[in-house]
């Protein structure tokens, strides 16, 4: 018996060829992106902004529709009252959203009275990026420039503009993973290292008085606040104090940011 049985599919070559082509295309795509100075990324990010805004709108409508309410709550209403409640909830959700926008823009107006800049909407999710970046809905056409400082309504530094498109820009958070920022803590110069998620760490020598709640400012951002001390690890055997810093800004609740020029 001449058994030449094999579990290997004799037609596997086509799938492998597709993978090789896909690998080559990916490498070529990144080379094109590097040569063109980010043209491919600009196209992808423009699409990302649209998808993000659409998903946010769909989520709001689903919440307002009451579809996920308990079965008992829905069963007790007749069809006419269900439609009426859904309409009222949608109007209330829209009203709350508008009120939140007005409150956010009011803080921006206060900041704009002292510093010239651009108010830009957040156009992406903060949790989706693994690199500590997010997108804003303003670009070159709106006056955003590279390395501009991005502030919250209270004037706290949130990040800097790392890439600019026509109508969108990519902002790298001040505490993005691996990012180092020169700062002042209780008058002592320190280097703050970002860990992502609005957290950072630094080391200060013994003798510097540091307590939770102390503000961390950055001379490179004209002395603006970049974070506050969250926890101080006091280990007498260590030559320095390990200080954990957090951003005072609730990034997930941020709807608008204020973009100012690098020298402002």
């Amino acid at each position: 018996m001449n058994a030449r049985f094999s579990y290997r599919d004799p037609h596997a070559g086509a799938g492998r060829r597709r993978l090789v082509i896909a690998t080559i295309v990916v490498i070529a795509l990144f080379l094109v992106d590097m040569v063109t100075g980010g043209a491919v990324r600009a196209i992808v990010r423009a699409g990302a902004v649209k998808v993000s805004l659409l998903s946010h709108a769909i989520g709001m409508r689903i919440d307002a529709g009451g579809y996920f309410s308990t079965h008992a709550a829905l069963a007790s209403q007749d069809l006419a009252l269900q439609a009426r409640v859904a309409t009222l909830e949608e109007q209330a959700a829209l009203s709350s959203s508008l009120q939140a926008q007005v409150a956010s823009l009011s803080t921006m107006a206060h900041l704009a009275a002292n510093v010239q800049g651009i108010t830009a909407p957040i156009a992406s999710s903060f949790i989706a990026s693994p690199y500590g970046t997010f997108l804003i809905g303003a670009g070159v056409d709106e006056g955003v420039s590279l390395n501009s400082s991005v502030l919250s309504g209270d004037g706290t530094v949130v990040g800097t503009v790392s890439e600019v498109g026509d109508h969108t820009a990519t902002v790298t958070e001040i505490f993005a993973p691996g990012r180092s920022t020169d700062a002042l803590l209780d008058g002592a110069p320190v280097s703050v290292r970002g860990m992502g998620g609005g957290n950072a760490t630094t080391q200060v020598p013994h003798g510097i008085t540091v307590a939770p709640g102390d503000a961390v400012t950055a001379p490179g951002f004209l002395g603006r606040t970049i974070g506050i001390v969250g926890h101080v690890n006091t280990d007498p055997s260590s030559a320095a104090l390990e200080v954990n810093i957090g951003s005072p800004v609730n990034l997930s609740a941020l709807r608008y940011v204020y973009v100012v020029g690098p020298q402002q």
Binding site: A12, G15, R16, R18, L19, I21, A22, T23, V26, L29, F30, D33, G38, V40, R41, V44, R45, A48, A128, S129, P130, Y131, T133, S162, E163, T170, T172, A176, G178
Partner: peptide, 30 residues
């Protein structure tokens, strides 16, 4: 043998990877 899986990794980096020098701008997810 999903070429779409490679596409997903590429899209992650094209969307979120900040610009910078090669070391700090490595497309990790690709």
């Amino acid at each position: 043998r999903a070429w779409e899986a490679i596409l997903i990794g590429v899209l992650i980096d094209l969307t979120w990877l900040p610009s910078g020098n090669v070391i700090h701008a490595l497309p990790i997810f690709t």
